[in-house]
Amino acid sequence: MKALFATRCRYNAWANARLYAAMASLAPETLAAPSAVNFGSIVAIANHLVLADRLWLTRFTGQGQPVPSVDAVPYPALADLRAACRIEEARAEAFCRGLDAARLGETLSYVTTDGTPMALPLALCLDHFFNHQTHHRGQIHGLLGAHGLKAADIDLLGFERETATYAGLGQA
């Protein structure tokens, strides 16, 4: 399972790079244009992803600043947003590199942003972490298309065909 999560880290960075490259071709006003989607715009969804990644990585590692809300837009400028995203990508990769089977079997206890105590298997929370990213990247990908951009493919198996990351970890 560790190899799968390590692959997902690399996949996320690869998919993010493709989306950010496409987003860079849009004007800041277009990125922030209101839309009837979660969080209201492309840049707001991307900010949500950074904040949610930061929130979960702080829960996973016990390190980092608390994230009181995942609905804010602290990075309205794409360059700042991309830099923040890269920081969280690096944190995720470091965390996954350090995982062991025993840790994956543990329960993660945390408090939600609304104050609800939770206790769930770490492996499930980590799977949610990656699934959440995929979900919102799909929204961004669709919105880019709605603005006339054909963004590069961000499919997990396309990543594997291009990089052989999972196979390279001896998991083919």
Rank of each mutant, 00 (worst) to 15 (best):
A27W: 07
S35T: 05
A36E: 14
V37Y: 10
V37S: 14
N38E: 08
N38S: 15
A44W: 03
I45Y: 06
L49M: 12
L49T: 01
W56N: 05
F60L: 04
G62R: 10
Q63F: 09
G64K: 04
G64H: 04
G64F: 03
Q65A: 15
P68K: 13
D71V: 05
P74F: 05
P76F: 08
A77Y: 07
L78K: 12
D80I: 02
R82V: 13
R86N: 12
R86Y: 03
I87C: 11
E88S: 12
E88G: 03
A90N: 11
A90W: 06
F95V: 00
C96K: 02
R97S: 11
G98E: 13
L99V: 12
A101F: 09
R103K: 13
L104N: 08
Y110M: 02
T113P: 01
T116N: 07
T116G: 02
P117Q: 09
L120I: 08
L120G: 00
P121I: 00
P121L: 01
L126T: 01
D127C: 08
N131W: 02
N131D: 09
N131S: 11
A146Y: 08
A151S: 14
A151Q: 09
A152C: 04
A152G: 10
D155M: 09
L157G: 02
G158Q: 13
R161P: 01
R161M: 11
R161C: 08
T163K: 14
T165C: 15
G168W: 11
Q171M: 14
